[in-house]
């Protein structure tokens, strides 16, 4: 299957004062339900605990991001997602919970470099000084929805809908372009 599958903008990359790159195929599963009630199934299948509000938990190749009071997003290798979805479904049988693979509904970008905040500040109405590694913030980037996952001190992953991948890449590249450093964040 994987040789048929392509991400939204394979290989797209832009180097400015921060580097923007399309992250390739990323497995993603939406899990909706009472986050307390699904915790055991979630950790059994993914190895990750239920994240606190606007946090990310991680275990090996899997991570779980808090999306809303009754929703988390599971991140896993792309080709592992269908099987993981099935296992989650089985583990949650009988519970009021909904599991859906959404890997292909989204595009994922990495923004790397110490000045990632300065780039994203041009697009998102967010005080990035309040965000550190392990945080997720859902917001908008210019005119489209975006989820920003802070994965390290100098790296974030930005998730948007697949259909707007080119738009997102264009506005991220322009925001990170050399010469436009705003020197906003230390």
């Amino acid at each position: 299957m994987s040789d048929l599958a392509i991400s939204a903008l394979p290989g797209a990359e832009f180097e400015g004062f921060a580097t923007v790159a399309e992250a390739g195929l990323q497995g993603m599963i939406t899990l909706r339900g009472d986050l307390g009630a699904v915790a055991k199934a979630l950790s059994d299948v993914t190895g990750c605990n239920v994240p606190a509000t606007r946090k990310i938990t991680q275990s090996g190749a899997n991570a779980v991001a808090w999306m809303s009071p009754d929703e988390v997003l599971i991140l896993c290798p792309h080709d592992a997602a269908p099987a993981m979805e099935t296992r989650l479904r089985e583990a949650l049988a009988g519970a009021f919970a909904t599991v859906a693979t959404v890997s292909d509904a989204r595009a994922v970008f990495t923004v790397t470099g110490p000045a990632w905040r300065d780039a994203l500040a041009k697009l998102c109405p967010v005080d990035f000084s309040t965000l550190g590694a392990g945080d997720i913030r859902r917001t908008r980037a210019a005119q489209v929805a975006a989820a920003i996952l802070v994965t390290g001190p100098d790296e974030v992953r930005l998730i948007c809908f697949r259909s707007v991948a080119q738009y997102m890449f264009d506005i991220l590249s322009s925001a990170a372009s050399t010469g436009s450093e705003p020197a906003l964040y230390p």
Binding site: A97, T98, T101, R162
Partner: peptide, 10 residues
């Protein structure tokens, strides 16, 4: 007891 998930782009 209903959930919705927008799968349009999946």
């Amino acid at each position: 007891k209903v959930h919705t998930v927008n799968l349009t782009e999946q």
